[in-house]
Amino acid sequence: MAFGDIVLYINPFHLFMFVTMLVFTFLIAIGRTETQVEAELGTLDDKTKKVDLKEFKARRFLSIICGIATAGAMITGDLYNLTLFMSLIGILNIGIISSVKQVEVLDSVFQYGLIAMMCSLPLFGGAALILGACGTVSLLAIQSIKPTAMMIFGAILMFIGACGESGIAPFFASKAEMFRTPGSPFLLIVHLSSLFIIIRVIEVLLIICT
């Protein structure tokens, strides 16, 4: 199966990740948000934090698109397509959390958004360097090309970009703040998409560098 020059890169590992992602997306599509209950100091009352219907609908829509984009990134066999999927996931992650009505969370989403915006430079720049060095962006063709210094530099740039877009380890400081908000299943997809994407990106970088 192919869309013109954009072919799929399929083996059992990728198919497994693709199907897992689609199953999770389905579970999230039929899921409902949790309600957090907080004990208050000084009184015997509890304070419930609910997600209202409008916010729920907006978040569910963005989560489903995010799940589909992650699933697509798992099986694509084209480097440029992968970077596009990654930046789509980055912008959706910001969108899912930016609808929260808590000031501290919105502040940290702002910082995460700054990183995600900066990361489009190394992400697309790295892909462009690899295209310039190889003359192609198809992973099946890049597999047989011997790595040059320019390709490895491009690969490292792409890795920096992917780290920032998916918000893994060093940038987790701003992301950890976001997980304190109500609305659990939709926040899980933020987590899950970054885990899956980073596995796929490392695999692609190994294809480029070997």
């Binding site: 869309f3 013109g4 020059d5 954009i6 963005l62 698109i65 084209d78 440029y80 397509n81 596009l84 999927f85 930046s87 789509l88 912008i91 959706l92 969108g95």
Partner: peptide, 14 residues
């Protein structure tokens, strides 16, 4: 590369 153009515009739409 038709699928790329679809993805690009969907990023903008989101």
């Amino acid at each position: 590369r038709g699928f790329d153009t679809v993805l690009e515009s969907s990023i903008l739409m989101m």
